[in-house]
Computed example of a mutant assay.
Amino acid sequence: MDLHQLRCFIAVAEELNFGRAAARLNMTQPPLSRQIQLLEKRLGGTLFDRNNRHVQLTHMGEHLLKESRLILKLADRLESSVQQSASGETGTLAMGFTAVFSWSFIPQLLKELTVKLPGVDFQLFEQVSHKQISSVEDNTIDVGFVRHVPPNPRLAWLPLQGETFVAAFHCDHPLARKRKIPLSAFNNEPFFLYSPNEARQFYDRITDLFVFSNVTPDFKYQLAQTHTILGLVNAGLGCAIVPASSRTLGLPNVTYMAIEGVNIQAHNFLVYSKANPNPVLPVFLKALSEALITL
């Protein structure tokens, strides 16, 4: 059904005067009358009882007025929704992140973004960095919060604030009373290391640090996730080197200490594909830049 004809009909039905309805629609009366005639022909009935003195809705006209208002309201809503979707004001954004980001950063970010982008639905995927990179490349996710970005001309990335590594010991360990410890304190200590497959960046940084300083811990397990490593430390089974944000986990039996003379950083990045067609992405990136000022 022609929406223009419905708008003409509503104007006449509300004004009950073809002249006033035509002026309201910024058109002359003959083409308005023609649109009403075409609509009546299409519907197979009379919409108005009219003579030289008055215009009155028929029973069919009263029913059509009610339905026409609903149809035009839905049509206007659809137009607005499509425009908002095309501009990125509404839609869906798939976001990946490592477990470390989920402890504090992602909850705080989502709290900010639900205010800034109320029309956007966020889908969340917890993945290690290299799996996020693959997901970004094939558009399974739109953005990833990762620890590293490989050289790839198809990817764009935004550096985020990094964090230092700290020592993690059980609270009953003799070293746990100290605020700082030398790296040599890890010699022969049972140590939990990151996996070279699932957490390559952390594995390389920590093992390079030990090799360069000629320190040899008693390596026990190689694990992908920081919270798993700290669960073992919390049980008193050994020690580890972890990002400083691990403190937010609040494990009761783990004590964190600075490492003297060590200033290695756990880097953080936002990564996305330059070819990503999602209209929400540029809107998200703008909102993220604003949110990072307060996070």
Rank of each mutant, 00 (worst) to 15 (best):
D204Q: 12
W157I: 00
C171F: 05
A176D: 04
L155H: 02
A176S: 15
Y194I: 12
A167R: 02
W157Y: 12
R200L: 15
S184W: 01
C171T: 12
W157D: 10
L160S: 13
L183M: 06
H170T: 07
I206N: 10
L183C: 08
D204S: 08
Y203E: 11
T207N: 08
E198P: 00
N197R: 06
L158V: 12
T164N: 05
L158T: 08
Y194W: 10
R205D: 13
F210C: 11
S213N: 13
P182C: 08
F169G: 07
L209E: 10
G162T: 10
P190V: 06
L175I: 14
R205T: 14
R205S: 14
V215M: 02
V166D: 03
F169P: 07
R205I: 11
T207M: 12
F165D: 01
L193N: 12
R177V: 14
N214Y: 03
K180D: 13
K180M: 14
N187V: 02
V215G: 01
G162W: 01
D208L: 05
L209S: 07
V166I: 10
F191E: 08
P196Y: 09
P196V: 11
I181E: 01
N188G: 07
P159V: 06
N187D: 14
A185P: 06
T207C: 09
A168N: 01
F186H: 07
S213T: 03
R177F: 01
D172C: 06
F192L: 11
D172Y: 03
F169Y: 14
D172I: 03
E189Q: 15
F165L: 12
N187K: 05
N188T: 11
K180E: 15
V211A: 13
L183K: 04
R205V: 13
N187Y: 02
H170D: 00
V215P: 01
N214A: 14
L175Y: 03
P190N: 05
F212N: 11
S184K: 07
A199E: 13
A168G: 01
E189P: 02
Q161A: 08
A185L: 03
V166Y: 01
Q161L: 05
L158K: 10
P182Y: 06
R200E: 15
T207H: 03
C171A: 08
N188I: 02
T164V: 04
A176H: 03
E198G: 05
F165R: 01
F202R: 09
V211N: 02
A167T: 04
F169K: 03
R200F: 14
T164K: 09
F191Y: 15
A185S: 15
Q201S: 14
L175T: 02
E163C: 04
C171P: 00
E163T: 09
P182N: 11
S184H: 07
A168M: 00
Q201R: 06
N214G: 05
S195Y: 07
I181G: 00
I181H: 00
K180C: 11
F212E: 15
A176E: 06
F212V: 12
A167Q: 05
A185N: 06
R177C: 05
L209F: 11
V215T: 02
R179H: 13
V211H: 05
N197G: 00
Y194D: 13
Y194C: 09
F202D: 12
W157T: 04
H173I: 05
E198D: 15
E189F: 01
